[in-house]
Design a binder for these strands. Structure first.
Length: 285
DNA sequence: CCTCATTCCTGCGGGC
DNA sequence: TGCCCGCAGGAATGAG
């Protein structure tokens, strides 16, 4: 499940392999992969052909490839998206959605996506920051991220702290896995009401978010299965470092209490019952 | 404006 | 054995 560290790993690989290359042709093999490109699949392919990729940038879980035209191709991996560099003669993947060939006849770029939650689109004039993702907050690895602004904004919310961490308009790049890991490190239950947290507590939580994201980037991200790999098809290793996510019943690495799993927002939350007790009062109580 | 439930999608694995 | 259902979940969308 690609979150910031996985997307950053992909970004680094793409930057190495596609920067400076001119796109020769684009083949859209599944229209759903470009559903966010309103003018349609044919236009998507036409507007990219002949353009040179000038870099690879990221905000939160979104990637974009600025082009020499001043436009940008936006990409989101969703749940199961992959951007792979492959030899021209490599067999098509079962879930190959979009293929890019380059003028240099070198390795081609493929967008492969089993569940099709991800997608690609072209942003007109979006090279610097695509308008389509301008509503996404800066992520905590961005030099321009404002710690004080985040702390204040989170405390103004009337919601639960895990919901706030997952809100990409407040802080981007954090998904279910890293939210649980950061909350465990901060010894906070995800249901804690944001407006009752002190500023120092939120500052500490942010520090843990940044730490866990940074450590995961160093490990090449988290891979549970073949659904997340880098541009060369390699898995990351951070799953070995997870303290709570996916560890229901296993002993907490701080206190030995079995990790619990709770339903949350149609998914699962993992936490330590002892280190992260549920809040005593309801959020609206 | 703010918050939150719903929806999209496919493959896997548990249970019967 | 084979079928069905739940689960995985990021983010757009619309309801309230």
């Amino acid at each position: 499940m690609p979150e910031l560290p996985e997307v950053e790993t992909v970004r680094q690989g793409l930057a190495q392999w596609v920067t400076g290359r001119r796109i020769a042709s684009v083949q859209v093999r599944h229209p759903r992969a470009v559903r966010r490109h309103v003018p349609g699949a044919a236009h998507f392919a036409d507007v990219l052909a002949g353009r040179t990729v000038t870099g690879v940038r990221r905000r939160g879980k979104y990637l974009w490839l600025p082009l020499d035209s001043g436009d940008a191709m936006i990409g989101h991996l969703g749940m199961s998206g992959q951007l792979l560099l492959q030899p021209l003669d490599a067999a098509d993947e079962l879930h190959l959605r979009v293929r890019f060939r380059f003028a240099d006849d070198g390795p081609e770029l493929r967008f492969v996506d089993q569940r099709t939650f991800g997608g690609l689109s072209v942003s007109e004039g979006g090279a610097e920051l695509p308008a389509e993702i301008a509503h996404i907050a800066r992520d905590p690895m961005d030099d321009a991220f404002s710690d004080a602004g985040f702390v204040a904004a989170l405390r103004r919310r009337r919601t639960e702290v895990k919901r706030a961490l997952l809100d990409q308009t407040l802080i981007s790049g954090v998904g279910n896995i890293y939210a649980d890991e950061a909350l465990w490190r901060a010894k906070l239950h995800g249901a804690r009401p944001t407006d009752a947290l002190t500023a120092p507590a939120v500052t500490r939580l942010l520090g843990h978010v940044r730490d866990v994201l940074g450590e995961a980037i160093q490990q090449g991200g988290t891979s549970f299965d073949d659904l997340y790999v880098d541009v060369n098809g390699e898995s990351g290793y951070f799953d070995r470092s997870l303290n709570v996510y996916g560890r229901e019943g296993a002993p907490c690495r701080r206190c030995g209490t079995p990790i619990r799993r709770e339903a949350f927002m149609n998914r699962s939350s993992y936490s330590c019952p002892r280190c992260q007790p549920r809040p005593r009062v309801a959020p609206r109580g």
